[in-house]
Design a protein around this nucleic acid. Sequence first.
DNA 1: TTTT
DNA 2: TTTT
Lengths: 149, 149, 149, 149
Amino acid sequence: MLNRVVLVGRLTADPQLKYTPNGVAVANFTLAVNRPFSNQQGEKEADFINCVVWRKPAESASQYLKKGSLAGVDGRMQTRSYDNNQGQRVYVTEVMAESVQFLEPRNQQSDNSRSDSANQRNQQQQQRQNEPDPFAGGSISISDEDLPF
Amino acid sequence: MLNRVVLVGRLTADPQLKYTPNGVAVANFTLAVNRPFSNQQGEKEADFINCVVWRKPAESASQYLKKGSLAGVDGRMQTRSYDNNQGQRVYVTEVMAESVQFLEPRNQQSDNSRSDSANQRNQQQQQRQNEPDPFAGGSISISDEDLPF
Amino acid sequence: MLNRVVLVGRLTADPQLKYTPNGVAVANFTLAVNRPFSNQQGEKEADFINCVVWRKPAESASQYLKKGSLAGVDGRMQTRSYDNNQGQRVYVTEVMAESVQFLEPRNQQSDNSRSDSANQRNQQQQQRQNEPDPFAGGSISISDEDLPF
Amino acid sequence: MLNRVVLVGRLTADPQLKYTPNGVAVANFTLAVNRPFSNQQGEKEADFINCVVWRKPAESASQYLKKGSLAGVDGRMQTRSYDNNQGQRVYVTEVMAESVQFLEPRNQQSDNSRSDSANQRNQQQQQRQNEPDPFAGGSISISDEDLPF
DNA sequence: TTTT
DNA sequence: TTTT
């Protein structure tokens, strides 16, 4: 039962870092992966692939990646479903990234090139690391049951 | 912009073979790929991954695979969206299979073990091959614009 | 720095199970992977790819696989070199399998279909598991320094 | 019989472009792919993986890549053997790259940052493209029989 | 809801 | 809507 995905593409937005009620880090981001060939109208197309990362690599991704970053992902495809607020079942396919590569040339300068939301996220995260907050992730809906291992 | 997926799993149902208005074969099937580990409730879980194949391998898949068959897929992840009849945008992620492997031990007997729908499909297909029908795929909604190349 | 390999093929011989001086299991086997197309002489060709597995999956591979078994491997390519007894440097490329799939239909009967060397190996292994031998792997040249992690 | 490899690494040297007697382009290069973890001595290690590309992507690789370039490869593992001049059989494992990605940020300037051998190669290549030389690849030992398709 |  |  093999299940392996490898992607290289660019983030469509800054990664979103959250914490489960138990304090486990999860980051979500979408990779835009350009298709090798143009379509019949001669347009360049891309696939937009949702990725999830857990634990340490989640925090690294959130720290080193931002909108537009070139990144590589090695992971597995996963599917799940939930009922939306209109009572309809929604099916989700995403990539559980086991490792994330930062393919952007190391940026020697300070991080002020970072997008605003990335800076904000970063501050929150730093805060969290200094004082392990009992309310960590308290208001978010991800659950420890989604943990891959 | 790498995009590569490799899967081995079992078909949840017989493949669905169709033809575009131009007579190009497309087959759809879903692979159930069991996860390597049990979840926190100790249950075995699986991912259900939708696959599409075009042209010759579509016809082979439809001929050699049926519900429950073990198959390998080598392809790319693709995303698309459409508006459903409630006017909502639905996002779809699927695997465009470039090659499909039949991992079931070659079945030496006649094919009467085949599920009913597989037999039906097969008859249709045979008919089609004998008399290339001008209405081929006439009533289906897939379009030649989805062709990968 | 992505490095990912996925293979499905047949073992050219029974796996070889050994133990490092520290008692860590390693298995070696070669997968014959048929090429998708025939060559210019119309002959079917295959690639013969050396694989290594460590620890638990090494013991499982040695237990469940034998010459001719269909198996899937998910791992990484590795290279190393050594000096042979003629004093020449030999370069080796192999696949470090992180997981091995047994794609043969579960064989319900006893294992007497097993090749002789597989049975032998198996006996040795069983012995080893019963009385953890201080000389384990004593006479073999693999080293704990090759351990992947 | 799946066989899929995806790599991201850096070229250890400029690619070597040659032509078969029939004028088909082949490029060879080695990718250094850093391992994710340090070894037991705390040293960072890398795997050095030989790659071959044919036809158009061979010429692109030779044009856009040089020693040190970050590149991605999507392809298949291949093995072959030959007898060296000491009459010994040498076994070779390499990656047949079906596609090569240039992951270096597009270099807006002229190409004078190119290594000398790259420039030389390039000139030769340009010459070849202008006047399709009857002696193309005349002195090299690669054969059209190695062509993948 | 999409990236360079 | 899910396979052995």
